[in-house]
């Protein structure tokens, strides 16, 4: 299985709910448990807030959800209107949170200066 869902939303925390609900809907198709779905939700919040800050930015965040056989991969890229995007920051605490709720995660600044992230959450075999 290799299905993909894309969501482009304003870089505003108001819209984070859409990003979470999309992830939750897809995870539920993959028979994630609700513990795992909550982890996904925490990961999305942590990473998107990491990109846009809790007050948001002027611009968009594009999210790409890829359904894998045993899990979900989510990649996000921000495009801000202002030139000085700044590099995404991830505190030690964020790092720790992401270690706990995802199987893989990374956040980086692309060649063109846009920040992006990627994480993978696998379903446990029950």
């Amino acid at each position: 299985m290799h299905d993909e869902v894309r969501l482009v939303m304003p870089a505003d925390p108001e819209f984070l709910r859409l990003a979470r609900v999309t992830a939750m809907g897809l995870a539920s198709r993959l028979s994630f448990t609700i513990d795992e779905i909550d982890d996904l939700r925490i990961a999305i919040d942590e990473l998107v807030f990491g990109l846009i800050g809790s007050r948001g930015r002027s611009g968009t965040v594009a999210l790409q959800y890829s359904l894998r056989e045993k899990g979900l991969e989510v990649a996000g890229t921000a495009a801000f209107d202002d030139v000085d995007s700044g590099s995404p920051g991830m505190s030690e605490l964020s790092q720790l949170i992401l270690d706990a709720v995802t199987d893989e995660h990374s956040i980086e600044t692309n060649g063109d200066g846009t920040p992006s992230f990627r994480f993978v959450k696998r379903r446990s075999d029950t």
């Binding site: 939750m24 809907g25 539920s28 994630f32 513990d35 779905i37």
Partner: peptide, 21 residues
């Protein structure tokens, strides 16, 4: 173990989407 959304939906008698919401 932790239940899936589908299992909760059956138990609650509502749709998966309502559980997520």
């Amino acid at each position: 173990r932790s239940p899936t959304v589908a299992e909760i939906a059956v138990e609650a008698g509502v749709s998966d989407e309502e559980i997520l919401e």
